[in-house]
């Protein structure tokens, strides 16, 4: 059984638990490719967070001419802004991730003879 790693003098009401092995899974041919996909996902989340922050800064600057950190943190997007940002988020997610669903299936050296059936002369 495992214990929470949280260090605190306060009551947590946490009990011991059975540690799972989800971190050990390898789904690709190379565990570093698995790691790269996770890294790319984390990086993309951070890029989106910066984009969202920039949108808020631009809106506040336009409205007030100045911004503070609190104003940025507390900004509540309007319904229209929220809908637009969601659309933009989905486009960004697709731009980053669609290549994973459009993987090729032809080994590059398998078509060495001709680049297209209409081309008669091979190298």
């Amino acid at each position: 059984m495992a214990k929470s790693s949280l260090k605190t003098g306060r009551e947590t009401y946490a009990a011991e638990f059975v540690k799972a092995d989800y971190d050990r899974a390898v789904f690709t041919d190379n565990p570093y490719i698995d790691s790269l996909i996770t890294s790319l996902t984390a990086l993309s989340a951070n890029v989106w967070a910066i984009q969202r922050r920039m949108k808020i800064v631009e809106i506040l600057l336009e409205k007030n001419g100045a911004v503070t950190r609190d104003m940025i943190e507390q900004y509540q997007p309007t319904a229209e802004e929220a809908a637009l940002w969601r659309k933009e988020r989905n486009s960004f997610v697709a731009e980053v991730n669609d290549p994973f669903k459009e993987v090729g299936d032809l080994p590059y050296a398998a078509s060495i003879d001709v680049p297209h059936p209409g081309v008669k002369k091979a190298l």
Partner: peptide
Amino acid sequence: LALESKGDYYAGH
């Protein structure tokens, strides 16, 4: 905001 925004990306993902 950072936590909320990264969560928003994970929701989109």
